[in-house]
Design a protein around this nucleic acid. Structure first.
Lengths: 247, 247
DNA sequence: TTACTTTGTGTAAGTTTTACACATTGCTTC
DNA sequence: GAAGCAATGTGTAAAACTTACACAAAGTAA
């Protein structure tokens, strides 16, 4: 790929670091925030963790967990900081989804927000809800959030629905050891559909990423199911070509 | 969804607009930019439009087309502005992909960049390359871009490869009327694979979104193929359930 | 008219998906 | 401890889809 020669058509001057720096400084600066949609799975329902808005204007509304990004903080770092602060948990699944930047989206001025979603195992978290303003909501009952958080939530929920079909995210919402029934309930809750039990099992056994740990459920009032773990290391090694055009 | 009563655990004060505004003002502001990966399809190759870096530090490198987001400009608007400026074209396909915000990514200071990709019909654009610094590059030969643009490019290219299999994006890269051979060449170029000609046709005919416009190719040195248009309005009306768990 | 190149088409084999029912296990309760 | 309950665990046949593959027909070039 040859470089083009300098010509009179190259009418833009080469910029020195100084010029660039002053452009970056100037008035072109905008507040950046991160908002996290934190999903959990409890009592066979998909849940999302919300907080009461701390703004007078939205006092009766719920909102996502978020904060301004610090000037010396990576975006992902910022999202992890929020997760850690609010859930007490580390090493959570986290994925950036979309950046929301409509001019009027925030009453405090121009704030552009990078949306993430995260998946947590509610068992681990249960012990730690100290903050009375936090609340787990059924995803179905999430309506009319503060700011544009309803948009953000919807976008993240759709993303989760798509991703969970193509990647083994779901296991982050379950205990380490789970039964196939729990796994199926999870998929049904996320996707909002009923699945055939036999075909569901066949599918997962065929993928061959479940480890039979030779334990069974306890304290269930019926025949206990076998427990499994997800074989992450086998999953990592797989190489899947995926060419399948279909609209 | 009952609101929680105020308690002493609600230790955060409700914030007035003033407080919020001052938080948004303060030092927490960051420069925001948009970078566009503009794809084209020409001579059976997938191309990307690059510009020579305007920074001294990266003088010998190519970079994506981008600009700072103006304080009163939506993100998408900003991306469209860049597209319009650089290609002269309106109403292009555009999709936001990811936001890149590593601390050290830009030498001019903290700049967070929202990445988009766009698809253009090179026929329309050809007449308008006035700017000698712009250049179409084969995607295969894109290496060592300025800043973190190689990352951004890779991410957008992967996104395109995925999306083009699930949505009818590809047609934005082709002339309005196209032959099945052109369509297949496009898919092969984007995905980097060879596809079986008969099965490819069968697939598209089965999807039933191609309109046979009863014209044939001209000026080809062999039996001319039939030309088709994509039936967008039929596509919009389709409702596809898509439940297919597969890692 | 011949040679060349590319279009257009069908089928059989293999694979995947779907729909569907019954015996088994462990717990509960009577 | 027998009977009833509620869930687990398992297989098969039909349908749908995917793959591999070859030859006649159309138009161009010489």
């Amino acid at each position: 790929m040859p470089l083009l020669p300098e010509t009179e058509l190259n009418n833009k001057p080469v910029k020195t670091l100084k010029i660039i720096q002053s452009e970056v400084q100037s008035t072109n600066r905008i507040a950046l925030s991160v908002d996290c949609v934190i999903f959990g799975f409890d009592e066979n329902k998909l849940k999302v963790l919300l907080i009461r808005s701390d703004m007078k204007k939205f006092q009766s509304k719920w909102s996502l967990l978020g904060d301004l990004v610090k000037p010396d903080e990576d975006l992902d770092t910022s999202a992890y900081r929020i997760l850690k602060q609010r859930t007490g948990l580390d090493h959570l699944f986290l994925e950036q989804v979309h950046t929301f930047g409509s001019i009027g989206r925030h009453p405090g001025g121009r704030v552009v927000s990078v949306a993430y979603y995260s998946l947590i195992n509610v068992q681990h978290h249960k012990l730690k809800i100290l903050d009375n303003e936090l609340h787990w909501h059924d995803v179905d009952s999430v309506v009319d959030l503060a700011f544009d958080h309803q948009d953000i939530f919807n976008t993240c929920y759709c993303r989760l629905q798509k991703r969970v079909q193509e990647h083994p995210l779901g296991f982050s919402l379950l205990p380490n050891k789970f039964s196939l029934r729990e796994l199926q309930n999870l998929y049904e809750a996320i996707l909002g559909v009923k699945l055939d039990r036999r075909n569901f099992r066949k599918k997962f056994f065929a993928m061959d990423f479940l480890i039979d740990i030779d334990e069974i459920e306890e304290n269930v009032p019926h025949r206990p199911g076998k427990l499994y773990k997800f074989n992450y290391s086998k999953y990592e090694k797989r190489d899947k070509k995926w060419v399948g055009i279909d609209f």
